[in-house]
Design a protein around this nucleic acid. Structure first.
Lengths: 104, 104
DNA sequence: ACAAAACATAAGTTTATGCTTATGTGTCGT
DNA sequence: ACGACACATAAGCATAAACTTATGTTTTGT
């Protein structure tokens, strides 16, 4: 998996919306379709892209497949972002507080 | 600018390479082409995409245009990433050390 | 003033990508 | 066992996005 693949997965607005939905709580593919005007195969394909990027992982439960955010994808982005810390403006306070939270 | 635009800018491997080059140090469009098999208009178009995404900014110097990483784009990603801190694995040590650095 | 250099923009072509319909695979309930 | 359901995969199509060639704009050196 090359670096730009993870960005490509989030570059599509529909996939981005799917990821945000999953970030609010795991659910199966059918539930994900609610609210979105998207066919079942399209959803399946989008989920495959997100999964291949490491952003999402699946867990089969009977005939349902539950999807949830895969921390590995986010960790990958975090590590990528850390490379450019020299360019971060000091006003990125959100990140600072975040880090403090993690230390507790 | 919607959220996925910044990801779309980094989704293309060529643009990603351009961004990485600029992260190592600002330079003009011609210098950026060195090493890459890419036409001059293609470079100009890629730089426009990166600029519109807030990832890069330009500064005209005579007939040259110097490009450099725009911290705003990275800050945008950082703030986006911070939204999902609930999913960060505790082993993201790179980020921890990074935050400590910023506190000094 | 003029030629060349550095870059941007326009227009057209090719390739990539997201969509559709159709069909396949596995699971559940009866 | 069988029909319905949840999802995946295949194949084809339509649009978008990245590229090309051609040309425009501004600056620089002479």
């Amino acid at each position: 998996m090359i670096e730009s693949d993870i960005f490509k997965a989030l570059a599509d607005p529909t996939r981005y919306a799917i990821f945000e939905k999953l970030a609010a709580g795991g659910m199966n593919a059918s539930a994900l379709r609610e609210g979105l005007t998207i066919s079942q195969p399209a959803m399946s394909q989008h989920l495959a892209v997100l999964r291949n990027a490491g952003l999402v992982r699946e867990e089969r439960q009977g005939r349902f497949v539950n999807y949830e955010v895969d921390p590995n994808g986010l960790a990958h982005i975090a590590r990528w972002l850390a490379k450019y810390r020299a360019y971060w403006p000091s006003r990125v306070d959100a990140l600072k507080t975040l880090l403090k939270d993690m230390d507790q």
